[in-house]
């Protein structure tokens, strides 16, 4: 029997399958568990199957275990943060010393708190170049060892209230929340109602790391003069309104390249109001529906709808709330804050 158990083998096989051949070399170099000679001996033009066999043999030789393979997975995930679904949580009510928590302290605290809450758990923490702390958690329970094939990833930027998670189950979420709250010196954590496939995009959206446009109420005053021919007036007016639409679209969603969000969901529980439909308008119950906007780049699609006139300007607060509040899930009701109401609709 070698050091590599079945889980370790499956994890390695899955990883090699997932990592594109041209990226495999750099990923293995970063791993630093292979000797220079072993790295030299890898022929990356070979089939994935052959590469897997070769790597399995090397791992046995170096007596690597599942924990080492987990490191390799972590390297791959950190390098490719835009795969899979990320959910954002927000820490609330910082304690006085929250801003002074530094990495070593956080690491120790998080590990000890989580290990206290659950007996079988495997935690790996790594700091990435951009201040982000990456945590990989393999969960077990009272009777079973940690399952390395279904890990949860947590990304936290120290000194910010944001935490990004992949695939936490309802059983793990409370444990994770408690450990996070305790180790970051906050008092509570809540669902930030933002999710997406691209970690960098949702991070940029929350931390406003993209070009924003500020309202300019006074366009160039010189534009009004010297127009004699009447259709010049019309053209100008049209060009003016197009420019105006574009300006308002950029004010609502931002300028330049926008963070890539895939969707926004609105749960509407508002009254049906339509002057042509008396029956429905007089009805007391809300008209319940769910509206989902989806696109390869939602904010760009919305900006284009506003600037092209498909959406009327000024942009409704419901849509502009996505970049403004950094959320993409909303519950809309008519009368103030309901159990989970996030905002009031504009009743214009």
């Amino acid at each position: 029997m070698g050091s590599m158990d079945n889980t370790a083998k499956r994890l390695l096989q899955r990883l090699v399958r997932r990592i594109p051949s041209q990226m495999l070399k750099t990923t293995l170099d970063k791993w630093s568990r292979l000797t220079a000679a072993q790295r030299q001996s890898m022929d990356y033009t070979e089939s994935k199957w052959a590469l897997t066999e070769k790597l399995l043999a090397i791992c046995e030789e170096n007596e690597l275990t599942v924990k080492h393979i987990a490191e390799l997975e972590m390297i791959h995930v950190i390098e490719n943060p835009n795969l899979g679904m990320w959910y954002v949580f927000q820490l609330m009510d910082p304690q006085d010393d929250a801003h002074s928590v530094e990495l070593t302290q956080f690491k120790e605290q998080f590990k000890s708190h989580l290990s206290e809450l659950i007996r079988h758990v495997s935690i790996k923490i790594k700091k990435h170049t951009d201040e982000a702390v990456w945590i990989r958690i393999a969960w077990g329970d009272t009777f079973s060892r940690p399952n390395h094939l279904k890990p949860t990833y947590v990304v936290h930027y120290l000194q910010t209230p944001y935490v990004f998670l992949t695939s936490p189950t309802s059983k793990q979420k409370p444990l994770l929340s408690q450990a996070l709250v305790l180790s970051t010196r906050y008092q509570a954590i809540k669902d930030a109602n933002l999710s997406g496939r691209k970690l960098t995009a949702i991070r940029d959206l929350l931390m406003k790391q993209y070009l924003q446009v500020f309202p300019t109420k006074f366009p160039s005053p010189l534009a009004e003069r010297n127009c004699v021919v009447s259709n010049l007036h019309i053209e100008k007016e049209q060009a003016g309104s197009a420019a105006n639409r574009h300006q308002m679209a950029c004010e609502a969603f931002g300028d330049g390249i926008l963070p890539q969000l895939q969707s926004a969901v609105y749960k509407l529980e508002t009254k049906f109001r339509d002057h042509t439909n008396k029956t429905m308008t007089e009805r007391d119950e809300p008209f319940k529906c769910v509206v989902k906007f989806a696109s390869t780049n939602l904010l760009e699609s919305l900006r284009h709808s506003a600037s092209s006139g498909v959406a009327s300007t000024p942009v409704t607060p419901l849509l502009s709330s996505v970049p403004l509040k950094g959320k993409n899930y909303f519950v809309i009701t008519d009368n103030g804050p309901g159990p989970s109401s996030q905002m009031k609709p504009s009743q214009k």
């Binding site: 049906f272 439909n277 029956t279 429905m280 009805r283 119950e285 008209f287 319940k288 529906c289 769910v290 509206v291 989902k292 906007f293 989806a294 696109s295 390869t296 780049n297 939602l298 760009e300 699609s301 919305l302 284009h304 709808s305 092209s308 498909v310």
Partner: peptide
């Protein structure tokens, strides 16, 4: 038809849509 294309899924509660 905007760039990139926007897909809107509009799901309405059965009782409400029936009353409409």
């Amino acid at each position: 038809p905007v760039e990139p294309p926007l897909q809107i899924t509009y799901t309405v509660n059965s009782q409400d849509v029936w009353e409409l």
